[in-house]
Simulated scan of single mutants.
Amino acid sequence: MRNQISVAVHTDLDDLVRLESQLFSEDAGVHDPRVDVSWPTRHARDDFVRLIDLDSALVLVARREGVVVGHLVGYLTAPSATRFGRRTAEIRSLYVDSASRASGVGQALVGRFSAWARENDASSVSVASYAANHGARAFYSRLGFAEQSVVFQAVLGD
């Protein structure tokens, strides 16, 4: 089965919201109790409309046999003086439904995003992952990503 990666369009909005909701539930819902996992059902549609139309962002969908099974959302940063005037690219979210994992869908999405980042003069691609999400960390490591920094967090109470 061949994976088809394409730039998302407005007719993909229902699928994008569905996948983002699954991502929130399976990732943040497991690893961070302070994340509102219902956010995608209320706000993701408007957010995706904005991102689809934004030149500095890229929203991709992956299809297998015509069905949307994954998505990637990423964007470019502004050129930074501390990065020798170069910009970077950041993957904001990536999700592949469980039935399509380990089939090359995620790798194809990251590859397409990385090519777009290179075409837009980004010096690197980065992504954040929960430390406890060992599957995501192993996935990105297999694709050549290296851990660069650690974020420390102190919860201040409710």
Rank of each mutant, 00 (worst) to 15 (best):
M1R: 12
Q4A: 14
S6D: 11
V7K: 14
A8Q: 08
A8D: 06
V9S: 15
V9W: 01
V9P: 00
T11F: 14
T11Y: 09
D12W: 13
L13W: 12
D14V: 13
D14H: 12
D14M: 13
L16N: 12
L16D: 06
V17H: 09
L19E: 10
L19M: 10
S21Y: 06
Q22E: 15
L23Y: 14
S25V: 03
G29N: 03
V30S: 02
V30T: 15
D32T: 04
D32L: 04
P33N: 08
P33M: 01
R34T: 15
R34N: 14
V35K: 04
D36G: 06
V37I: 15
S38E: 14
S38I: 01
S38G: 11
P40C: 08
P40D: 13
P40H: 10
P40Y: 06
P40E: 11
P40Q: 07
P40W: 05
T41C: 06
T41E: 15
A44F: 02
D47G: 07
F48M: 10
L51P: 01
L51I: 03
I52G: 02
D53Q: 15
L54S: 15
L54D: 13
D55W: 02
D55I: 04
L58T: 05
L58G: 03
V61E: 08
R63W: 07
R63I: 10
R64W: 07
E65D: 10
G66E: 12
V67C: 09
G70E: 10
H71N: 09
H71P: 04
L72H: 08
G74H: 04
Y75S: 05
L76Q: 05
T77L: 00
A78L: 08
S80Q: 13
S80D: 07
T82F: 05
T82R: 09
T82K: 03
R83M: 12
F84P: 00
G85W: 06
R86A: 03
R87W: 01
A89S: 11
I91E: 00
I91Q: 01
R92N: 07
R92Q: 12
S93H: 09
S93R: 05
S93V: 00
S93E: 11
L94N: 11
L94Y: 07
Y95W: 15
Y95A: 04
V96R: 08
V96I: 04
D97Q: 12
S98W: 04
A99Q: 13
S100Q: 10
S103T: 11
L109D: 07
S114C: 03
W116R: 02
W116L: 02
R118M: 00
R118E: 02
N120K: 13
D121I: 00
A122S: 04
A122V: 00
S124Q: 09
S124K: 07
S126E: 06
V127F: 04
S129Q: 01
S129V: 12
Y130K: 08
A131L: 08
N133S: 11
H134M: 11
H134W: 03
H134G: 05
G135Y: 00
G135C: 00
R137S: 02
A138M: 10
S141T: 10
S141Y: 03
R142T: 07
F145Y: 13
A146F: 01
E147W: 00
E147Y: 02
E147T: 04
Q148A: 09
Q148S: 10
S149K: 12
S149L: 04
V150G: 00
V150R: 04
V151T: 12
V151C: 03
F152D: 01
V155D: 15
V155S: 11
L156R: 09
D158W: 00
